[in-house]
Structure formats: C-alpha cells, structure tokens
C-alpha cells in the first residue's frame, strides 16, 4: 500500500494496512456525510494507527478555521474506526480491491491499542502540542471509549524521523 497525499508519502505492506479511503464501502456511503482518514495500519505489535495526512494546520490565532479543522478531522477518526470495524464484522462488505490486510485483520480482533494519528507536513512542533490538546478536549468521550488517550499530532519532519512518512 502506498499513499501520496498532502506532500507526504507513506508506504506499508498490504498485509498490515487498509486503504480505507479508497474502499468501496466508504465510497458508497460518503455522500451521507461519512468521512474517512487516509488509511489504517497495524504498524507495530498490537497497535493500530488511523492515519490522516494534512499539508498544514491553521494558526492558533484563527479560531474559526482551527475549530472547523479539528471538527473535520475528529469526524474522520470517529467515522473511520466505525467503518473499519463495520467491515471487519461484515456489516459492510469488504472490497476485493482494497481489503483489510490479513495481519491487520487479526490484530483488529485481538484487543488492539488504537491510536489516532494526524501527520501535518508543515507545522511548528509546539503547535502539534496545542492541536493535540484541542483534539483531546473535543474528542474526550470518544477517546475514552477506545482507550486511545489522545490524538497524536506529528509534524512531517518528526514523521520522517520516526519512519512513518517521507516528505515529497
């Protein structure tokens, strides 16, 4: 699986990933207001990342833009995990072209640690901290339900450093 989005590229083997944004189930229902992150990845051990990529983030000063930015991405996380488990439990039909990777599927059924991750290509490191705090506030009940603690906001540079993405 390879994604080129928002000036970044991420690349994982098919068995541990799921291109949720491309799958048929999502495309079928997105006109109903369903939104989705880029992909779902079982990057390590029993940990599953729901990964969204963005080029930039609004400045803290621009409160309206920032608020809608956070709400939009929060919706993506919320909808994506529902859709992912809905496909996993065969409530929605799995797409043969974009299936859930075998290893990822196994992990989904074994009490995984869920992590919601936003990778922003260009963002100051301290703004990652602020954005994460905003997600924490906005999504507290949801994060509690999934035992996810917080949304990880990471700059492109940091994502590259951690081997999660490549800057294009």
């Amino acid at each position: 699986m390879e994604i080129h989005e928002s000036g970044m590229a991420i690349n994982y083997t098919d068995d541990i990933s799921f291109l949720i944004e491309k799958c048929h189930a999502y495309r079928k229902i997105r006109s109903s207001g369903v939104s989705s992150v880029e992909c779902v990845v079982n990057a390590k051990k029993n940990m599953i990342y729901f990964v969204e990529l963005k080029t930039t983030a609004p400045d803290k000063e621009n409160k309206n833009d920032l608020e809608s930015y956070v709400v939009e991405i929060a919706d993506k996380f919320i909808h994506s995990i529902s859709l992912c488990y809905s496909i996993f439990h065969e409530i929605q039909k799995e797409d043969a072209d974009y299936p859930i990777g075998i290893t990822l599927k196994e992990c989904l059924g074994k009490s995984p640690k869920i992590r919601f991750m936003l990778l922003v290509k260009t963002i100051a490191e301290d703004n990652c901290l602020h954005l994460s705090a905003m997600f924490q506030k906005k999504m507290r009940p949801f994060l509690k339900i999934w035992n996810a603690e917080s949304v990880i906001v990471m700059s492109g540079a940091k994502a590259v450093q951690k081997g999660l993405a490549v800057i294009e």
């Binding site: 390590k44 051990k45 940990m47 490191e125 994460s132 603690e149 917080s150 951690k162």
Partner: peptide, 19 residues
Amino acid sequence: AIALYSAEVEMLTGDDDDG
C-alpha cells in the same frame, strides 16, 4: 514543552513501552 509532548508521543506510539 515540546520534549514533554514528544515523550507522550513516544509513549503512545509504543516506542517507550512494550506495546
């Protein structure tokens, strides 16, 4: 402040624990 946040990210991405 960033170091604290980075420590949190390390913890959440499992680089700081056994997963």
